[in-house]
Design a protein around this nucleic acid. Structure first.
Lengths: 235, 235
DNA sequence: TAGATTTTCATTGTAGACAATATGTCTTCT
DNA sequence: AGAAGACATATTGTCTACAATGAAAATCTA
C-alpha cells in the first residue's frame, strides 16, 4: 500500500488545489489533518508537507498550533486584487507573446478546447479550472520567475471569485463567457504572431471584461462579508 | 530537549533564509537533510516542512528524490529580474505611501538606523540584510497579498546579487551606498507625507541606482555563468 | 579493455507512536 | 448566578524507525 504513497501525495496536492479553486473547500474553512491524511491514504507528516507548500503558494494560511485555514477572502482582498491584476496580467501578456515556445502554444490550444467544451456543457467548475489553466500556461510562457508568484496568487482568487458568480443560464453572463472565449483565441493568435504590444493590450481588455462582471455582483456587498476571519485576531 | 523544538524550528527557518540571502549558502548548492536537522537540533520531518516552505517562497528548489537545492542564479535570472523589478518596486512605493501605519513607519526608521550603522561599520552582510528588511517593511506597508509574493522573490535575488558585488573599500561603491541610504530617508519622509506619486518615482530612481551598479559588474559576464545547473536537466 | 549489468549504499520519503499545546467544559468560589 | 480556575480532551507538532528510490561502485561478459 505504501508503494502508492508518492502518487497519493501528488494527487493530494492537486486535488486540494482543485477543491480550493472551485470552492468545494470554502474560503476561511479549517482543515483537519487526520481526516485529510486518511482521505488521501497518506500519513500526517507528508500531508503536512503538502499543506506547507500550499500555504507557500497562497492557497492556505497556517496558524501555529491552531490549524490550517483555506485562504480567506475579505473585502480588502478584492480591493487589492483590483489594484494588482491589470498590472500583472498586462506584463504576462507582453512577455508571453515574446517568449512562448511551440510546445507551449500547442498546450494553450489544447486547454482552450477544453475551456470551450466546459462552456458549452455548462460545467461551471470545469470552466473555472480551464480558465485558470489557460492563464497559468500563459504565465509559463512569460517564463519569468519573479512575475509568476504574483500571477499564481492572483489566479487563485480570480478563480474563486469567478466560481461565486457563475450561473449557467443567465444570458448576459453567457455572452460574457463567449466574449472571454473569443479573447482567448485572440491571445493564441497574437502569441503565435509574437505581437507583444497587442497581447498586452488584449490582456487589459480581458481584465476589463472580468472586472465589469465582478463589479456588477459586488454592489450587494453581502458576498464579501468577512468570510473566514482569523481566530483571536487582534484587529 | 524537545521543548525547544519549535524555537529551533523557527530559528532554522530564519537562519536558512539568512544564509541563503548572504550567500553563505551559495546558489545551486545541494543541502543535506540529516546534516541540517542535526545542526538545528530538530528531526527530519519538521526540517522538511521548513524546506518546503522555503521552496514555496523561492529560496530553494526541491527535486523529487534527488535533494534540495539553493535556488540557482543563471544569466536568465538577471534578465528576468531587470524586467520585473522596476514595475513591482514602483507599485510597492506607491502603495506603501498610501497605506503605511504609524507603527510600520517606526519600524522602518529602526531598520534604517541599523542599515546606516552597517554601512558605517563596513559590514557587508548586515548591510545586505538590513536593506532587504527595509524593502520588506515597505512591502508590508503596501499591504497587498497579490503584490507581496513577487516582491519577496525579487528581494531574495536582489540581496544575493548585492552580496556578490560588495566591496567595502571601493570609493565609487561607497558613494553609491551613501546615496542609497539617503534615498531610504527620502522614502521615509515621503511615506510619512503620504505622497504616493513621489514615492513611486523615488522607487524608480532607487532601482536605477541599483541597476547601474549591477550592470557595471555584469559586463565581464563570468559571474553569472551557470551557477548550480539542475542535474539531469533536459535543456 | 570497454561496455553493460548487477549490487551496494547513501539519501530521500513515509509511517506509526509519543509529546505538547490550545480549546472547551466542568467545577468551585464569591 | 456569574466568573475564575483547573481539568479533560481533541488536535497539532515532533521523534524514531523503516521503506524506497537513485546514484555509484563493482562485477561480469564480450
Amino acid at each position: 500500500m505504501s508503494g502508492d504513497a508518492k502518487r497519493n501525495k501528488t494527487n493530494c496536492l492537486e486535488d486540494l488545489k482543485r477543491r480550493i479553486l472551485t470552492e468545494a473547500l470554502e474560503p476561511g474553512v479549517y482543515l483537519d489533518e487526520m481526516e485529510l491524511a486518511e482521505e488521501y491514504g497518506i500519513s500526517r507528516p507528508p500531508l503536512r508537507e503538502v499543506l506547507r507548500q500550499l500555504a507557500g503558494e497562497g492557497y492556505l494560511v497556517l496558524h501555529e498550533n491552531r490549524g490550517t485555514q483555506v485562504a480567506p477572502m475579505t473585502h480588502k482582498t478584492l480591493r487589492n486584487f483590483f489594484i494588482v491584476a491589470p498590472m500583472v496580467y498586462a506584463a504576462v501578456g507582453r512577455l508571453a507573446a515574446q517568449n512562448a515556445t511551440r510546445a507551449q502554444i500547442m498546450r494553450l490550444k489544447d486547454v482552450q478546447l477544453l475551456f470551450r467544451a466546459a462552456i458549452r456543457g455548462g460545467d461551471g467548475e470545469q470552466r473555472a479550472l480551464m480558465n485558470e489553466r489557460f492563464h497559468s500556461v500563459m504565465g509559463e510562457m512569460a517564463d519569468n520567475e519573479f512575475l509568476m508568484p504574483s500571477l499564481r496568487r492572483l489566479l487563485i482568487d480570480h478563480t474563486r471569485i469567478g466560481m461565486i458568480f457563475y450561473s449557467p443560464r443567465n444570458t448576459e453572463m453567457a455572452d460574457q463567457r463567449a466574449t472571454a472565449a473569443d479573447q482567448h483565441d485572440e491571445f493564441i493568435a497574437l502569441i503565435e504572431a509574437g505581437d507583444a504590444d497587442a497581447c498586452a493590450d488584449l490582456a487589459v481588455s480581458h481584465w476589463e471584461l472580468s472586472r465589469q462582471q465582478i463589479e456588477r455582483f459586488v454592489t450587494p456587498g453581502s458576498i464579501f462579508a468577512p468570510l473566514g476571519r482569523v481566530p483571536n485576531s487582534i484587529a
